[in-house]
Write a protein that binds this DNA or RNA. Structure first.
Lengths: 192, 192
DNA sequence: GAATATCGTTGAATATCCTAAACGCGTGGA
DNA sequence: TCCACGCGTTTAGGATATTCAACGATATTC
């Protein structure tokens, strides 16, 4: 599915990116140039990576599509085809004895979203040093209880209770209860 | 919390954006310039919106932080303060008799992620006409069973099973079982 | 309180981008 | 066939961005 365009890197190669987007929307260089109020020559040079456009002119061009700068840089050209997964098909990503983290789908670049089913055995503790990364994350406790620390805030969450925070705030998960805790969490952009 | 910087638009005002990001990471113009291999003057001019940087130089600058172009344009500067939520504090967003959809946190603009706890009563059916929107979504069945249709694919998901698809593909959820089905789902960008 | 250091800003020179107008190429119609 | 049309590309020159070096302002040190 999607367009057969493999070698398009994420951040670099603005030229290919613009060309692909333009073609997806069925526009010629001249047509896009007309809509955007720039010249076709400029678009040609940009698509060949012979120049690196200024933000202002790139924005003008994208406005002609129309597409936001954020969408332009975020766009994902290689979505996965797989839709359904059994419990066993979830990808195990943690290699700790007391914590199981299983990702819905395979590890894939360019997704908007990562969802995990996590199981914390009694006494399990992530520690608070390692967990800092970009993005935001969210979770709901399904069974058991989990002590969640986010920055200076801490709380014991019981089934049905939830959290939402920015991932760059240091955070820590601990199961101080007697039974295993099942947590379903999501993060965006995906960490794994 | 966060920095007191309200009037920062999303796509425009690259200058304020860069300045804010730089300050969040605790860098001076000169220090960032040194890391990025550009001059402090250039950063000064960009932050004042007196020039519109080329993608290449903006990328060089962001590499000095480091931060990707996609993250730079996607970054959200108005996160919510609330972190923890009880089951009752989840925001009810569906107004259907047979389906309950409760959002973690309040409806908020500019989040990366939306997470829902959904309960489908036996016989509940979303229909397949209304559900089309941007983004990607993902879910795990917690209890009961749910018949999920995505495009031409259909499957009955049992507890622990999951789905992941692009939201612009028509999709439908039905509970054809005898007991209520609890589903935890996430979508990005958030629909609510 | 002067000397020093560092911050962000500015002006002139240089490097880079964008426009305007051509070019070469393929296609389809008189 | 030959001309007209539209495509993406190229080149010269004007417009814009970036560098380099200096400047004033604000702390900090002696």
């Amino acid at each position: 599915m999607s367009l057969a365009l493999q070698g398009v890197q994420m951040s670099d190669d603005i030229g290919s990116r613009l060309k692909l987007v333009r073609q997806i929307f069925g526009l010629t260089q001249r047509e896009l140039a007309r809509r955007a109020g720039v010249t076709n020559g400029a678009i040609s040079l940009i698509e060949q990576n012979r120049v690196s456009p200024s933000i202002s002119s790139l924005k003008k061009i994208l406005d002609g599509i129309p597409l936001s700068l954020a969408d332009f840089f975020t766009l994902n050209f290689s979505p996965s085809d797989e839709v359904f997964f059994t419990a066993e098909e979830l990808t195990e990503i943690a290699h700790l004895p007391e914590i199981s983290m299983r990702l819905v789908g395979r590890r894939a670049k360019g997704r908007a979203l990562g969802m995990l089913r996590e199981v914390y055995q009694p006494g399990a503790d992530t520690g608070d040093t390692m967990l800092r990364h970009e993005g935001e994350e969210c979770g709901i406790v399904v069974s058991g209880s989990l002590t969640v620390t986010v920055g200076v805030q801490e709380r014991v969450l019981n089934p049905g209770e939830a959290y939402y925070f920015r991932s760059d705030i240091p955070h820590r998960f601990r199961n101080q209860g007697a039974e295993p805790c099942v947590l379903i969490s999501a993060n965006s952009p995906p960490t794994f």
